[in-house]
Simulated assay, not measured.
Amino acid sequence: MKTGTLIKILVLLLFLLIGCITVSRELFPSGVQAVPPPSEELTGSQTPLVIATGDMSGVYFPMGEAMADLFRKYNGKATGTQVTNASIQNTKLVSQKKAELGFSTVDALALPEMKKRKILALTGLYSNFIHIVTTKSNIRSLEDLRGKRVSIGTVGSGTKLMAERILKAANLASNEMDVSTLSFTQSADALRNGTIDVAFFSSGLPNPVISELASEMKISLVPIPKQVAESLHEEYEFYTLDEISGQTYTGLERTPTLAVKNVLFTYPDLPKQEAYKLVKTLYEHLPESQNAYPEAMEIHLSDATAGIPIDFHPGAKQFFKEIIH
């Protein structure tokens, strides 16, 4: 083969490769995990469904993956999950139709600015528990956080929202600490290498990154005092005093803390029948998710609509009305 012909073939192959990469990026932007299309025997809509989740080391991400599996398997829905900063960022993505579904804690959904965003609930889910993780033996209370290096969660996360409210209720000002805004993964790494002393996590139980950290080194959880919890409950009724049991993580004792409910939501323009099918699929096949992820064991149809500060999508309303009657 002549050299000139060989070069032409190589150039043609290079253009074809670049074209494939470009198409892939257009269909699934950065941060979205592409999911293989469903089998031909499924007759559902092939419009991609993107679920805005959270940090890959949190619970939102694997829960989103589990839901994506269900929707692909039973609804014939090409589905992907997008890694985000969680609650507040998810509401922005969904309201701007950059994602079809998203997870959020109810405290984030109750923020005044959320009234300006067009989002509707599909169902309530499990609860998040605040974990205040430290590697220091001399940090046993919120008061001990003064003068320490503290990660309060990423900007746009429910973790940061709760952390700031807890610190305020405990009369701790941000200028009394060296505050950073790290993700779950970054916080765990910073605790490992000693660049921070304390990290806040708002997560379902158990949180994977905390489980891994507890198996590697000595850590402890800082309790939230009853008076701080009661104060926050009075001001924001959706926070409840709860506990992380001693069986949740290796070597950790029972710890009083705050819990807050999670919600799966969408935008109003999602077709009613599609929203109905998504909620129906979630509950009809919930045992599959429960077998894969322990957090799904805390999703109960009986309290799916309780304590949600935003309106429900008409498709979700139809499903719950049928179940009630």
Rank of each mutant, 00 (worst) to 15 (best):
N138P: 04
V263L: 02
A304C: 08
N128H: 01
S245K: 07
V150E: 14
Y293E: 12
E237W: 14
H313T: 01
A214G: 11
A304Y: 02
H313N: 04
F15W: 11
V279P: 01
I299L: 00
V260N: 08
M177I: 05
S127M: 00
M67V: 13
A163K: 02
V23E: 11
Y267K: 12
M63C: 07
V23K: 07
L13Q: 00
Y293R: 04
F238L: 13
H313D: 04
A188Y: 15
N175K: 01
T248Y: 11
P271E: 01
D144N: 14
Y239F: 15
L278E: 06
I210W: 08
K98F: 13
F15N: 03
V279I: 02
V155L: 04
I196E: 07
M177E: 10
Y276S: 11
Q33K: 03
I51D: 01
G307M: 00
L70R: 07
T240D: 04
V198H: 12
Q290D: 05
P206H: 14
K317I: 05
F200V: 09
I310T: 00
P38D: 01
I219V: 12
T135P: 13
F129A: 01
Q318R: 15
E243Q: 13
L258E: 05
G102C: 10
G147N: 01
K261H: 09
V106C: 02
R140M: 02
A316S: 11
Y283I: 05
D311F: 08
A68H: 04
A199M: 13
L167D: 03
G246H: 15
S231A: 07
A169L: 05
N138H: 07
A68T: 03
L282F: 05
I224H: 00
I224P: 00
E65G: 09
M297W: 02
A259W: 13
L252M: 04
S127P: 02
R165Y: 03
S174R: 15
A169G: 06
K160V: 07
A86S: 14
A78G: 04
L221T: 12
R165P: 09
L167F: 11
T135A: 05
I166M: 02
R25K: 09
K115P: 09
I88S: 06
D197W: 11
H233N: 13
T22V: 15
D178W: 11
P36E: 04
K317Q: 11
E176K: 11
L16M: 14
A34T: 12
I9W: 05
V263G: 01
A110D: 03
P225H: 13
N171I: 11
L142A: 02
V50E: 07
P294C: 00
V179C: 12
R192K: 10
L125Q: 02
